[in-house]
């Protein structure tokens, strides 16, 4: 029997993975943002504070631009080593060097305050801008791909440095009355792959190696203004969420109703 590795504050890695599911952050009087409830253990003296008003207001102003979902985040402050994990999903750290990266809100676990977190205009996604380290969870290891490519919506974790994706539909398979019936009932066979996200331009696309989605984390509302996608009233004509195949709306439109 191999003896398991025992970690203590000296042997725990600093800002690196302990195993593929656990990440260790070293705090030396510094601060980290983390999603609520993702800390599993820590050594040393670390305080966890919800970010609302009060002494973190300046920090929130400079590196947390979404006051509307501030209640889902916590600031860890102090010195010591802290372990982060999320429902036994794979966790990985990524370094951004004066870059930008957009990630599904549920996948982001923690980030350094040298990065700024902003709500993406794509609903359910957040964007990190600046220089620093962040930790993200994924179901299965993350795969890096380069555009142009089309990805399955459920496998997408995020993208860096490339313009936002657009929807791509398998036209021939989805149009016509037969296509409508097929996508509504499944009769005639749906492959489940009629709809993808399409990426073009230069950059990197991050995919997880499974199609299990992480629970979505609220990103807050967007202002109710005309021209703001995803806004409750002023946004898109057909509702704010992308229209998925198989919805009744498709069939109605096909019959010209």
């Amino acid at each position: 029997m191999s003896t398991p590795v025992v970690f203590d504050p000296m042997t725990l890695p600093s800002d690196d993975n302990v195993n593929s599911y656990t990440f260790c952050v070293e705090l030396k009087g510094s601060r980290w943002f983390l999603q609520k409830g993702k800390m599993i253990a820590y050594y040393g003296q670390i305080d966890f504070d919800g970010i609302g008003h009060g002494r973190f207001e300046r920090l929130v102003r400079t590196s947390f631009h979404s006051p509307l979902h501030a209640s889902d985040w916590v600031v860890a402050e102090g010195s010591g080593k802290m372990l982060l994990a999320d429902r036994a999903f794979d966790v990985n750290s990524f370094d951004l060097d004066d870059g930008n990266l957009t990630i599904r809100s549920g996948n982001l676990l923690a980030y350094e305050p040298s990065l700024a977190l902003k709500q993406s205009i794509v609903p359910g996604f957040v964007t990190l801008i600046g220089t620093g380290k962040f930790v993200a969870a994924s179901n299965g290891p993350v795969v890096f791909m380069e555009p142009p490519l089309r990805v399955d919506p459920q496998a997408l974790v995020g993208w860096a440095d490339c313009p936002s994706p657009c929807h791509h539909y398998d036209h021939g398979y989805m149009t016509g009355v037969m296509g409508g019936i097929r996508s509504l009932t499944g009769i005639g066979g749906t492959s489940g792959e009629e709809h993808q996200f399409e990426f073009v331009g230069a950059g990197t696309v991050l995919l997880q190696s499974s199609e299990a989605l992480m629970a979505e984390q609220a990103t807050g509302f967007v202002p109710n203004e005309p021209g703001v996608p995803g806004g409750p009233g002023g946004g898109g004509q057909h509702g704010s969420t992308p229209r998925m195949p198989g919805q009744l709306g498709d069939l109605q439109r096909r019959f010209g109703l």
């Binding site: 025992v6 970690f7 504050p9 195993n19 599993i40 253990a41 050594y43 372990l83």
Partner: peptide, 12 residues
């Protein structure tokens, strides 16, 4: 998920 083994000593 794979467990992490952590040592506790009087100073830590």
């Amino acid at each position: 998920g794979a467990a992490v083994l952590l040592r506790v000593s009087p100073q830590y």
